[in-house]
Each structure stands twice: as C-alpha cells, then as structure tokens.
C-alpha cells in the first residue's frame, strides 16, 4: 500500500483522535473476490484522489447477513446484524457508502429496526453527487468516449430501492454511447445471483439466468457492460465467457469506469 493510496482504518483514526465523514462498507465480495477487489480498489482510488474523509472497518467488517436472511436463516442474519451494529455504533458511524447493493439494501432497510440507523448511499449515488457538486470532473477525451455501453440494473439497487438514475448519470459523463437493454429499469432482468442463488447451483431449467441476461446485453451491440453490483459482475462476466465474447465485451463496475477514465 503506497502512502498516496493509504486506506484509512476506522480503528486507526479513532486511536489518532481523528474522525471521518463516511464509512466505506467494502462487503465480502469486495474484500475476497479477485475480480471484485479491483472494484474496491478503484473506488478507494477515487475517494483518495478527491480527498474524501472516509474510513473502512478492515478486518472488523463482517457479512451483513443478507444471503443468510434470503436463504431463510433469520437467526444467522440477526446474529450478524447485531454484531455489525455494535461495531458501527461503536465508531459513531452516521453515513455509509457501499459498492454492494445487497449490503446497501440490508444496512439501509433491515438494520434500523435492530438498532442500526445510518444514512446509506450506494456508490453510484455517491459518485453522482461528486459529479453534481463538481468535485469529480471528467476528462475531455476519456477512454470510453463514443463507446457503446449498456447498464445492467441490479435488482437490489433498482426495484428493491428505486435507484435507477444515479448509475446512468454517472455513465453519461464518460461521454459514451449509452444503450439500454430491452428489459431495463423496473423491468430489468435479474442476473440470477440474488436471494442466495450466488451460493448454490441453479435449479433444473432450460438455461442459466446469467446467460439469458448476457445474451440480451450482447444484443445491444455494446462493448462494455456496466454493472453496479459485485454479484451481477460475477454473473455477467461468467455469461460473457459462456458466450465466448470475453475478447470483445468487457464487464466493468461504475467505479472502475470512472477510475480508468480519470487515469487513476
């Protein structure tokens, strides 16, 4: 970790008597999944680049319990939730930004009644705010200028919480050619990973959901599929591989697109 790209830990800041404005909740995929770790690093680069006052929990972070809850294990979910709430409240966290819509949904909607009340922002909205306030300025001729990009709505961001515009606004500043899939926004088709599906084989069917969705994305003619969720990222990347298109079509997270465009 270079000094320039130092990631502030909440525990260290507290020890130094410093505070932070927003906590970056990395999530399990963002911490462990090889592909998704790059999204985490891209987002941190943006935060550092703009001198945002933030912190991460590091090894003190733990699964929000989302997959357990949706698979039916409410005990495990509430165990996770209550221990996380103890940690978050211990640091006096008020605002949380996360790159994972599943963490976002759980922290935002399911933690309050268990004693965890925070203002939740998904990184798409966070980036949009940085663009709107002029903190994040786009380069004139970025690397995605004129490229066809299609955005895949994450269920837990879109339908679950009504965030449809922020990710699209973020993509607009790339000056790319934004194309929509037939099923988008409220009608967006799931990538197939939600509700615990990420952690088991799919039931018997005629096709895998991620392949169905990837085919739809490919049909737009886009060279970049933009995702805003680590699970969607995995599912769509697998889908592109399944269709043997990995040399021509890339799946990127919004944070990666912005970081690349900024040359970070």
């Amino acid at each position: 970790m270079s000094e320039l790209n130092k990631v502030p830990l909440a525990a260290e800041l507290l020890a130094e008597g410093k505070s932070f404005d927003v906590l970056f909740w990395v999530g399990c995929a963002g911490s462990f999944d090889e592909r998704v770790k790059s999204v985490t690093r891209s987002f941190v680069k943006i935060l550092n680049h703009l001198n945002i006052s933030y912190a991460v929990l590091g090894t003190e972070e733990s699964c929000t319990g989302d997959p357990a809850k949706r698979a039916g294990n409410e005990f495990l979910f509430q165990m996770q939730a209550m221990s996380n709430i103890q940690v978050l409240n211990g640091y006096g966290v008020k605002r949380i930004v996360t790159t994972c819509p599943h963490c976002f949904n759980t922290l935002k909607n399911e933690y309050p009644s268990l004693g965890g009340n925070y203002e939740l922002v998904h990184h798409s909205t966070f980036l949009q705010e940085l663009i709107d306030t002029g903190q994040l300025k786009m380069k004139e001729s970025g690397s995605f200028k004129g490229q066809k990009i299609t955005y895949h709505d994450s269920c837990y961001l879109g339908r679950a919480n009504g965030v449809y515009e922020a990710p699209r606004k973020v993509l607009e500043v790339l000056d790319a050619d934004l194309v929509e899939m037939k099923r988008c926004k409220t009608k967006g088709l799931c990538c197939g990973a939600g509700g615990g599906q990420m952690f088991k084989e799919p039931e018997k069917g005629t096709k895998d959901i991620n392949v169905e969705r990837t085919e739809e994305a490919i049909a737009t003619g886009a060279t970049v599929i933009a995702a805003a969720c680590p699970f969607c990222m995995t599912m769509l990347t697998d889908g592109v591989k399944n269709k043997e298109k990995e040399s021509t079509i890339k799946v990127y997270d919004l944070a990666e697109l912005i970081a690349q465009n900024e040359g970070l």
Partner: peptide, 19 residues
C-alpha cells in the same frame, strides 16, 4: 469466517495491499 466464502477473516483487508 464472517463471509459467505471460506476465506480467513484475517485476510479481509488484504485487498488494500495491492493499491
């Protein structure tokens, strides 16, 4: 392990090493 995959919780912050 505090994560749905079998990783060591001690490695949770290792992503920052490669920055």
């Amino acid at each position: 392990n505090q994560a749905p995959w079998k990783f060591s919780p001690a490695d949770r912050f290792n992503w920052a090493d490669k920055l």
